[in-house]
Design a protein around this nucleic acid. Structure first.
Lengths: 137, 137
DNA sequence: TCTATATTTCGTGAACTCTCGAAATATGGA
DNA sequence: TCCATATTTCGAGAGTTCACGAAATATAGA
């Protein structure tokens, strides 16, 4: 989807390591998948439901999405590597892929700190604060 | 832009705190801004150039984008809060907004850890690894 | 086998994004 | 004031995303 974008006008990006960087294109597809209110909501729900995951129907009930719209959004999250599914009887259980999430965060942090490491410390602190609530980690 | 999306089909998302959550809509617009190969490249460039920032023309030379395309992408990053600009003579200097970046990372980490804190530790480790290279922080 | 439940696939129209050429605006220097 | 440089704005066409209704597929149980 986002990978098959038109590429005109991007000549020259290779000059600083843009093209051919698999990490970067992976990041773009993960970001594209999350850059949608409904899909971000689904993903949050999946993360909160833990490794056990959540049946598509329950996700649909929680978000109010129609089954077909939900299905296409789940497919987009899955193709971006952010979710995985398994069948359980008549239901299909989706779960968040934490490794993909870690990879995306690492990629973004790397960007953030490549230039001015000092400036990126607050980002780490904020991330840890978000991660641990107000408690010490 | 992404904020003014059609909203049909999202009824019911409010049930678990989706709608009206400013944080979430901010995250979606930041994610949308970064979910584009050229803009992600621009943003990385800006982050690496530090607080001093970079003139639009230099960004154009580095990325190979046409001036008008570049301008519209810089506007999108700015409107998403990820970049800021100031005029310096004939040039306009853009810089990354680190606070916005921290906020986005915190939001994503928060999602990641709300359900299963133990699972999110690797994400923090990965983020710190990305942040600090292979050196201890 | 028949029926109900659960989810996906298909096709379509509307809305949105993206890039471009051309023109406009702004600043600095001759 | 005139000109060159730097950047933005405008308008348009091509391509993509989105949500929906209808139909198809898959599983479980009567």
């Amino acid at each position: 989807m986002a990978e098959a974008r038109r590429e005109s006008g991007l000549a020259g990006l290779a000059d600083f390591g843009y093209s051919g960087n698999m990490e970067s294109t992976d990041a773009v597809s993960a970001l594209s998948a999350l850059a949608h209110p409904g899909r971000l909501a689904i993903f949050r729900l999946l993360v909160r439901s833990g490794p056990a995951g959540m049946a598509a129907g329950d996700i649909g009930r929680a978000t109010g999405m129609l089954a077909n719209t939900l299905s296409s959004n789940l497919t987009i999250l899955t193709q971006a590597g952010l979710a995985a599914s398994r069948r359980d009887g008549r239901s299909i259980i989706y779960r968040a892929d934490y490794q993909a999430m870690s990879g995306l965060l690492a990629f973004l942090m790397e960007d953030c700190c490549a230039g001015e490491p000092a400036i990126c410390a607050p980002a780490i602190a904020a991330a840890q604060a978000g991660a641990c609530g107000t408690k010490a980690c």
